[in-house]
């Protein structure tokens, strides 16, 4: 499946997805509650240690931040202008810890385990009308539809290029959307036909 998982057998990998999510939420809240740069820096160090325990190179931790580097730059610049560079540094460290920890969750947990975790977690919500089987059906269907729709989107763009850019993309997109909705109708019939 198309996920970001890095296989491994470390304690971080083995921890149940539910616990990992809980830890992430706890650290995230603590970072904002304990409003101190010393704490944030300690958490940063702890996070990097966790990456090593998970057997991941520190470049992986950096990889979590890299896509957001320009946002980091903007935030830092704004803080330097409006407050001070030390506050800017503090804000960046806090943000970096959050991104790296969340990234660690993603890197060490298989999507399918996470989906199972979600389904198990939804069990108690049955009482308020959430049907875990429906949810897992919807998740599977989405994963099933993504390649189909990526294909549709690709075809529409290609057709537009082939006919010249003056051609209105809407005249291609609208029929494509209508077709996919009709497809969904038949998929729905097929699910009913298989007695769900």
């Amino acid at each position: 499946m198309l996920d970001l998982y890095q296989a491994g057998t470390s304690p971080v990998h083995m921890l149940k997805p539910g616990w990992k999510i809980l830890c992430l939420a706890a650290v995230g809240s603590a970072l904002f509650a304990v409003d101190h740069i010393g704490f944030s820096t300690a958490m940063l160090a702890a996070t990097l240690v966790l990456y090593r325990i998970a057997g991941l190179p520190l470049s992986r931790a950096w990889g979590q931040i890299r896509p957001a580097v320009w946002v980091f730059g903007l935030i830092f610049a704004a803080q330097v202008i409006f407050n001070s560079w030390i506050i800017g540094l503090y804000v960046l460290i806090r943000l970096a810890v959050l991104l790296m920890l969340a990234g660690l969750l993603t890197l060490t947990t298989r999507s399918s385990d996470m989906i199972d975790g979600i389904n198990a977690g939804l069990g108690p919500l049955r009482r308020i009308g959430v049907n875990p089987e429906r949810v897992s059906l919807a998740i599977s269907l989405t994963l099933r539809f993504i390649p189909v729709l990526s294909h549709v989107v690709h075809d529409v763009r290609e057709a537009q290029r082939a006919r010249g850019l003056d051609r209105n993309i809407l005249s291609l997109a609208i029929p494509a959307i209508i077709r996919t909705i009709r497809m969904a109708d038949e998929v729905s019939d097929a699910i009913d036909a298989r007695g769900s």
């Binding site: 269907l141 099933r144 038949e186 699910i191 298989r194």
Partner: peptide, 10 residues
């Protein structure tokens, strides 16, 4: 159309 009948990704 089998594409519309296959419900699951795997």
């Amino acid at each position: 159309n089998p594409d519309n009948q296959i419900v699951f990704p795997i």
